[in-house]
Design a protein around this nucleic acid. Structure first.
Lengths: 202, 202, 202, 202
DNA sequence: GATGAATGAGGATTCATTCAT
DNA sequence: TATGAATGAATCCTCATTCAT
């Protein structure tokens, strides 16, 4: 009578588990999350979880990687293929992307990397290569393209793409720590972009 | 010849223990630090540590507060009494202060708050009131003073003191996570300050 | 050849553990019994014990309740259904029951309640409701039935069923404290019963 | 201005400490009482306490002995020298003594002996010799004297002086365990005495 | 493949006892 | 003497990981 719960396919399992683990880690952090809790959220047994992930740490790494991989490619592709002018791209897709970061899984990953990164150099390396380097590279290339096209002039900024991301970073941290203190993170990022573009164009 | 098994130094113990705990937490984070390890570093027994701090959590809070309390007052006092012009102050003492933050205990505190803050609202509140609110307030007042004096014009920036701190924040996080990736954090902050002052003065 | 490292016996474990705990508590009392010792006696690991009982105190309560529940019902049922005269019942089943109490688990429970009861009001309440109140009630009803049937006359005794139990109680305490001092506890109880029946019948 | 606290004399110290320990043990039992708590109640330092009592156990034994020694002699002396008839003595001084036991330090001692006795055979022996044997002996001698004087007849009771004490014992236990359940312990003891005397005189 | 019962090393905390002052 | 800071063995409890079923 009670129809059997939808029979998940084997190949979905790892993703379901990392998704459950992501939620749990997001709520409680790595140390305070019990493997049993992850299994429960994923609707599988502890034993099965260990069939896919040898240790809690391996699960942790898989979580970070899965979030990272899913998120970054879209933006990067965008950069390469867009037909927008540099300013249009920066004010449009880039700004939009940054605005949603503080409320996205990326913010959680940042929190986890800050807590656990020092003990996982390989994970940090992975994150750097796949997210940070590519993100900074994309911004750099965009600025350079703007210069080549005569949209922007040379300036110290073109070698400090980090400045585009700094308010986003502050917003992420703010949201993590001060969950109940208001901060207009959108305004913050918009103002920074305005300022950077003013500098680049003057 | 026969050195005593221990010394009675009631006055100094709490500081010695929080100092040792700070080091240990800085290296390994809260969860991975064993109370015994803290005691060892402080050169005392586990039992003595529990004489001064009822639990590991209370020790943690004491560590955070002791770092915070010792650090902030200097800058804040400076703000109130300086005779420098707004620009001079910002380019001088404020910038200097910010430059040393990523390598200072404050960076460690930030890391710990990101990891453990969500489970310690009172600590977050304490940090907000004593550091963040005062720091942002000081910057705001400085900008306003500059406006009153005719040094600066009105701009969106005067309501977003966070923009002064954003590169510092990014630098802190960068150092925590990417210990072995170079980043010229001084340049980053200088450039941001340049940009902000340009905007404020134009 | 290679015997399994352990057996899965979910059904039996709780009983085995409470039985082992009963033995350990009987020998050493609550405070002096280590959880590890209970686990050892039960042939399980500490961890498993904590799977079934959240804390040592909960285990303690379970032990008390398990002993109590198993023991009392038999006598009480007997009271309700017996066809013996009041005197026959008192001299027969009731006396037999009382005689075996000092050497039974009930004596251990009494010892544990005396030691730990003051810190476990709920346990005391449970014991009162399930053992003491029912036991006293049964005796009272028996005496009243004797009066109704004309076997007994009215007397102060009919409102003090405790007098039937007093020598049993003294015997229990005697055995707990003076393990190596002889006392003819059977004779003690028989004599008391004789005396009470003489009074009731005269 | 604040006059120095009355300067206790050295010779009073041990008694003050055992008195404080008695209170603490009475409230919390042996295991749950901290030595520091005893010292605090006695108004001395832990160090000083250890000057008088080598260990917590030795303190415990001293407490038991001090209570016992102070209490028993009065009654025993009374027995030897009284000019009352046997019945008068039993209904008078003996009954009065028994009535106050459940609310007296002796009840506490009984509780402590039940909890800790099994691990302190010497203490049990001391208690048996000084209290139980003498108490039972006194009752026995009184009954025998009654028989010699023709007040009482021979009966099984004369060899079971415990029957005089059984309701007192039950009352003690009742008060320890069921602190908030009423029981007319006086009536209980009076009725038992009535019953015993009736048997002895008939 | 799945499950979750079972393990046991690890870590926080307590408290009787010692001993420098 | 007198103090109470300091010690460290003892013990409860947790949780990642294993493995019988």
């Amino acid at each position: 009578m009670n129809k059997p719960r939808y029979q998940r396919r084997k190949e979905d399992r790892p993703q379901e588990i990392t998704a459950a683990a992501f939620e749990a880690f997001a709520e409680n952090g790595y140390a305070k999350t019990r493997v049993e809790e992850v299994a429960r959220r994923a609707g599988v047994s502890k034993g099965l979880l260990y069939l896919y992930f040898k240790t809690k740490e391996e699960l942790f790494k898989a979580v970070i990687k899965s979030v990272v991989i899913r998120r970054v490619d879209a933006l990067i592709d965008n950069v390469a293929t867009t037909e927008l002018s540099s300013e249009e791209f920066i004010r449009g897709p880039l700004l939009s992307f940054m605005k949603q970061v503080p409320g996205s899984p990326v913010a959680v990953v940042i929190r986890l990397l800050i807590s656990e990164g020092p003990r996982h150099p390989d994970l940090v390396e992975f994150y750097y290569e796949n997210v940070v380097a590519r993100g900074l590279g994309a911004i750099t290339r965009f600025v350079e393209r703007g210069i080549e096209r005569g949209e922007f002039r040379h300036s110290a900024i073109s070698e400090l793409p980090h400045l585009f991301l700094a308010p986003m970073m502050l917003s992420v941290i703010w949201r993590i720590i001060f969950t109940n203190r208001k901060l207009d993170t959108d305004k913050l990022m918009e103002t920074q972009i305005d300022m950077l573009l003013t500098q680049l164009k003057t």
